[in-house]
């Protein structure tokens, strides 16, 4: 299996800037990706069996788990990975409807990871974190 050493220092500033811009663009799309996942989870709740719905959830989660890590959102990737593993097992088991209690903690963890990434970015920029009302 291939591996490499970190060569970020070998990139030009223009190249690093393009990567940063790409990362910002990806981050801006995260709420939409999370909404897709939330919608897929909601569609599964209450259904006795919905293999197609479970496959759709799996695809959304699989994409997020993979791309988030590549773009540097490791916590989001890890949280998505837990949900991905669950969805994969559920598909292997025949696509039975999930119990809400199984999914809720993992979905919450995903949202928390997203919130944490936004908090970190705000802190890095020096913006104050306003308390929720």
């Amino acid at each position: 299996m291939a591996s490499g050493t970190n060569t970020v220092d070998k990139l030009t500033e223009a190249q690093r800037a393009r990567l940063r811009a790409l990362r910002r663009s990806y981050e801006a799309e995260l709420p939409e990706k999370l909404a897709l996942i939330a919608g897929a989870v909601a569609a599964l709740e209450g259904a006795e069996s919905d293999r197609a719905g479970l496959e759709q959830l799996y695809q959304h989660i699989h994409k997020l788990a993979g791309s988030a890590a590549i773009y540097g959102f490791d916590e989001i990737s890890r949280a998505a990975g837990s949900l991905e593993a669950w969805a994969s097992s559920a598909l292997t088991a025949g696509g039975a409807a999930p119990a809400r209690v199984e999914l809720a903690p993992m979905v919450d963890a995903l949202h928390q990871a997203f919130s944490a990434s936004r908090t970190m970015r705000k802190r890095a920029r020096g913006a104050p974190i306003r308390p929720r009302r």
Binding site: N6, T7, L19, G66, A69
Partner: peptide, 8 residues
């Protein structure tokens, strides 16, 4: 292996 580091 995914995820890979784009810079490498």
């Amino acid at each position: 292996r995914k995820p890979f580091e784009p810079t490498t």
